[in-house]
Design a protein around this nucleic acid. Structure first.
Lengths: 125, 125
DNA sequence: CTAAAACCTGACGTTGACGTCAGAGGCAAG
DNA sequence: CTTGCCTCTGACGTCAACGTCAGGTTTTAG
């Protein structure tokens, strides 16, 4: 398929797909005229890339880990890298969970204040 | 205390503290000479700001929600906003959890491949 | 064959949260 | 009063992941 269709099917912009190629995250065959042509598998590949971005990995990190993720190829160094990234993601989950709890208690307190009418009116101006 | 001490005690750079003030996240008294002077409570305040940043909120969002978080003051609109942000954080936790699971399975597969020696040697070139 | 739609390669613009540098001024110690 | 550290206000630099625009080419529909 061509780049427009891949974009439509993945929900990623055409510009982003070209960017991924530029970063060596994604490759494509070229027609004699120079247009990119992707296999079906590119859809999954793009979704994988998006998921790794969602994990907070940078494109540089992703490109380093890609051979391992795609082929299961791994060196000890690569494996260490992967494990480190996993820990990093874990830490972010922990942070986010704490932040969420904080928001929860703020919401609870604010709701209580509203109900009791404590310092939340500013009418009569 | 002055800005350098606050920076040291919070682990945040002096530049960042000035930036927070610029964004109306943090305020300070001024000495006659123009230097910022913070109360003890500023330490907690900065840590709160950092935690909200860690939750993925932008400075604009934080400044909007600040009166609610600090004083418990809330309007229905503010409360809706808070709840929306909470949901957002929840979604990010879900995404990160999926990404982590994916990394885990990659790690498991790669470790297996290394142990069996499957396609991870590239010597004898 | 022709026009429209999709695609191509640069290359500059954007956003957020600061980093960094320059030049000038404040402040406690000796 | 001077030395030296801390602080001040601009103001430009950075980095990532694209957005957007320009000018030109390829592909497809009729």
């Amino acid at each position: 398929m061509r780049i427009g269709e891949l974009a439509a099917r993945t929900g990623v912009s055409v510009r982003a797909l070209r960017y991924y190629e530029e970063q060596n995250l994604l490759s494509a065959e070229r027609t004699p005229g120079g247009q990119r042509h992707y296999p079906e598998s590119a859809v999954d590949r793009v979704q994988l890339i998006r998921q790794l971005y969602a994990a907070g990995l940078s494109s540089r990190t992703i490109v380093e880990l890609m051979p391992c993720v795609i082929d299961g190829r791994a060196t000890p160094a690569l494996l260490k890298r992967l494990t480190a990234e996993r820990e990093h993601v874990d830490q972010r989950i922990t942070d986010l969970t704490h932040a969420r709890d904080r928001l929860d208690s703020v919401i609870t307190a604010a709701t209580g204040n509203m109900l009791t009418g404590a310092s939340c009116r500013q009418e009569t101006t």
